[in-house]
């Protein structure tokens, strides 16, 4: 609550063009957007909640639920695609039972399919939190996921 108020203070001008930056800051702070956040921002910017929800669901990176402890990002850029990242996606989905944008029920993993990570020469690329893996194979996916599960235990 307080943190939202603090963020809003940084935007003294009530202008709609601040909406995306405000939501980005809130998400940065809280991990995802809550109904409360939508309500507060709407009040502050004089915008209906539906407009804020509508905007947030339009863009890839706004979320309405928390990420997993281990956030997996998989690059599905064209170069990674050419290097079979599609198989990796299937593998991850198969291993975790979640789709792009979802979090496992135990809160351990979440998956985000990214359109390009910018390391096209090293594909396929995936990342878990801030650790990157390049030239990943299907078997490695299994190992990586298992590794974090063990770390957790």
């Amino acid at each position: 609550m307080d943190s939202i108020a603090k963020i809003l203070e940084r935007y003294p001008f009530v202008e709609r063009e601040n909406l995306i930056p405000i939501l980005q800051e809130i998400q940065q702070e809280q991990g995802y957007l809550t109904e409360e956040a939508v309500r507060e921002v709407g009040r502050y910017l004089n915008l209906p909640a539906s407009k804020i929800y509508s905007l947030a669901t339009f863009y890839n990176r706004f979320r309405f639920h928390p990420l997993g402890s281990y956030h997996i990002r998989l690059c599905r850029g064209t170069s990674c695609q050419v290097h079979q990242s599609g198989k990796l996606e299937k593998k991850i989905i198969g291993e975790l039972g979640i789709e792009d944008g979802q979090t496992t029920t135990d809160g351990l993993y979440s998956l985000e399919v990214v359109s390009c990570m910018g390391a096209c020469g090293m594909g396929p690329v995936m990342a878990v939190n801030n650790r990157y893996y390049t030239g990943v194979t299907e078997d490695q996916v299994e190992e990586i996921i298992a590794y974090y599960r063990e770390t957790e235990e």
């Binding site: 202008e15 709609r16 063009e17 905007l55 863009y59 890839n60 706004f62």
Partner: peptide, 24 residues
């Protein structure tokens, strides 16, 4: 201005909408 992720914002009118704080 940091975009929040939408390929269509490469289209200029979509980009402008996004800058204005709207759906792109």
């Amino acid at each position: 201005h940091q975009g929040a992720g939408a390929y269509v914002c490469g289209e200029e009118t979509a980009l402008i909408a996004s800058l204005e704080g709207k759906r792109g």
